[in-house]
Write a protein that binds this DNA or RNA. Structure first.
Lengths: 201, 201
DNA sequence: GACAGCCTACCTACTAGTAGGTTTAGACGT
DNA sequence: ACGTCTAAACCTACTAGTAGGTAGGCTGTC
């Protein structure tokens, strides 16, 4: 049945996401996945011909969803700091759900990844950076952030700090690293302007 | 012969380091390793009974060396900023050598790692953080850094930013992300001191 | 002769992937 | 309403290849 098939495909993608974001690409297997879904290994191949195709498809769907989420933030928030705070929320949400951010989980093993996935991870990070640059640029233009702020480098810093904090939090099994690291970055963005400090959410 | 054995053992550790820091734990194999060294797979077991033991031993040696390096920095530099800059040098050096920092490479796949390695990765990060806190604390005491600086959170930020920047740089195959991210953190540490304080309430 | 170091040959468990058959269900002509 | 056709979805049973690990033998040095 059509609806049933879509369902299974989606469940496959969902479980793949969990496995990729907890164990990584190399350490997850079709057997693993099949058992979680409750179908046989061979049936996965009906939906995704190869592991590489499944991995690539997962990143693609994830990316579409993520792009929409980022666009939504731009629509709902009009100031740079709240936008960044919402952005940081994705990372704290990841940890709360007991997972790494997808591309943070994959990029360490980039060298062992199929080419199709390498490219997508790369594209994903570039998307993050482009969005952050947009937010920062508008923040500067609106006078919310200092005019001397280096947009490109600050975007890198925000992404790096959040991915890195997630990595450290993941290894230490202590999510409380993320928010302070981010708030430190943000508070210094604010310090460099003339406004004062609206801490806490 | 004893010297010969040590040699092989050391070469095993060195190649293991390369493999772990480029492909990760799950994606590297005894076959891989044996070929690089030029011995048979089975012979590795003579030096390290299991893969887990090899991995743990690698982290242990790495950790000893790293602790010495950190101690050396404390001996050679007496100010916080140069100390941090030397610390950041480890991360840029990693990328220059075409590798991830060891624990950054491993921590993403923590959940798929043998327990002995999980604990060591964790311990490694805690060592980093403890060292950073020491440097920052002394920097505050010496008046090089602002007295209001949160030592614990700043230590987390420095580690996170550098690990994260390495991750991003690794995925983008562009090492130039690391230094700017770090310098941004550092420059804001300096800004928050009273030395170059141009008014602002 | 003890033993380190390395070997060949092998094991079991598991990997992604394939071949080919069965079940289910909707579409269609009569 | 009926059998017939098609095709999606899934199955069992299998492949070749690789994973980490073991048993036992050869060799050279102390």
């Amino acid at each position: 049945m059509f609806a049933m098939s879509l369902d299974t495909r989606e469940r496959l993608l969902r479980e793949t996401e969990v496995l990729l974001r907890t164990k990584g690409y190399a350490a997850f297997s079709y057997a693993d996945l099949a058992e979680r879904i409750g179908i046989r290994k061979a049936s996965i191949h009906h939906h995704f011909r190869t592991k590489e195709e499944l991995g690539a498809a997962l990143i693609d769907t994830y990316l579409v969803k993520f792009e929409a989420d980022l666009a939504q933030i731009l629509g709902q928030e009009r100031e740079a700091i709240p936008r960044l705070r919402r952005y940081a929320g994705f990372f704290t949400a990841s940890m709360r759900e007991g997972m790494m951010p997808l591309c943070g989980a994959l990029s360490a093993e980039t060298a062992a990844l199929p080419l199709a996935m390498q490219q997508r991870v790369r594209h994903f990070f570039e998307l993050h950076l482009a969005w952050l640059r947009t937010v920062l640029k508008e923040g500067v233009k609106a006078g919310e952030l200092g005019p001397d702020l280096d947009v490109g480098e600050t975007a890198s810093l925000v992404l790096s700090a959040l991915e890195g904090a997630s990595l450290v939090a993941w290894a230490l099994k202590d999510a409380s690293v993320i928010t302070p690291a981010f708030e430190q970055v943000v508070s210094r963005l604010i310090d460099s302007t003339s406004t004062n400090n609206p801490i806490r959410e």
